[in-house]
Design a protein around this nucleic acid. Sequence first.
DNA 1: AATCTTGTTGATCGTATGATCTATAAAGAT
DNA 2: ATCTTTATAGATCATACGATCAACAAGATT
Lengths: 216, 216
Amino acid sequence: MIVNEKTASDAEPQGKNMRRRLHPDERRQLIVDGAVVFFAEVGLDGNTRDLAKRLGITQSLLFNYFANKDALIEAVYEQVYLNRLSPDWPHRLVDRDVPLRSRLLAFYADYSKLIFEYEWMRIFMFSGLAGAELNRRYLEHMHKMILLPLIDEIGAASSAAITPSMEDLWNLHGGIVYIGIRQHIYRMPCPDEPIQAIENAVDRFLKAFEVDVSTD
Amino acid sequence: MIVNEKTASDAEPQGKNMRRRLHPDERRQLIVDGAVVFFAEVGLDGNTRDLAKRLGITQSLLFNYFANKDALIEAVYEQVYLNRLSPDWPHRLVDRDVPLRSRLLAFYADYSKLIFEYEWMRIFMFSGLAGAELNRRYLEHMHKMILLPLIDEIGAASSAAITPSMEDLWNLHGGIVYIGIRQHIYRMPCPDEPIQAIENAVDRFLKAFEVDVSTD
DNA sequence: AATCTTGTTGATCGTATGATCTATAAAGAT
DNA sequence: ATCTTTATAGATCATACGATCAACAAGATT
């Protein structure tokens, strides 16, 4: 005779399989949080039944909170990408009261803490491969608001008056981002604290453009 | 009244919908070639019906040549990754008769021609996200056979006897690879000829380790 | 031209998946 | 306690997809 209908292997989060009645806002947030982790792991076409099982709710409940799967994924995007980075970096990066090296390191310390997150990196890659507009918008923002101003900053700080090209800046950027790709996409062993690698990369870059870093 | 049962939008490759009977080897190769392009575009869980339609064959024929979808994808991996890069790079990279800068540029000219291919880059990313062992093996090979020897080469060529860390080399590598990622994953505008960007990146790197490049 | 071999098709099966709908019961109000 | 509201569950639908199989026909053999 069957005692437990549901086996423990299904990993019911709350232990009991009781029906908990939550406030809609709270339930919705639980779903989005779970969906972020779930989709980051299995990809954006992970199925709704597995997600529901992981959340300890029925699959149909998902469609009570989101019109369809796309709407849920849209909510995942918002959760992961909206307002996660301080909006005043464009200003801080051009604040010449602060040494350029310090500005760069501060920015990449902040930025890397964001993008080296498992969920951020994987969902960004999944959506990029799926052709989502999100990624292009994000990178165009990065181009315009972060990298473009840096061209002038580095050119101005260069004692030899050498100015980097946009491709040079993408190279600096990409070299840093690639740490997160190695870690979360390819699951390769990576330094726990990538700060040192970032610092070295920035210093190599500044040295190439003859930017004096002794004031720091 | 309907004249053409099948619309042109379905893109029947051979024009007619006649049943062509090919030699198994030839048919198999046609399938693999089409699958590479198809899966690179839509991802590894693109469905077999769409693939068959694109190839102008029936879906069932696919399973005549491959036991199941996984076997087909395995064949795609082989086609894209097996023996695509000259196997004597490990030797050429440590050939000190050639200036280090030349060796590096020659390698990355060759390597980038490979990985900046649309199919290579996307399938590598798709399989990486899917957790395929392939990627780890590939990158471990890169680590051991290419980057690790380069540590010594650069250290030996450094006039200040500075030796880069493995993280430094991954940074150089990642910055270059990221060009392809921007182009094929995020579909951002990129330089048609990345050779210049690669050259700059290599020169910055060598300069940081005080490697004399005047002999080149 | 008739026959044989086998590459190819069309129909079909079982299951997985997104989505819908009605019944149920948990929490708050009275 | 009882009533009311509505969050949640369970059953179900339509379709999509991987996979199978018997039947057909293109090309080789005689």
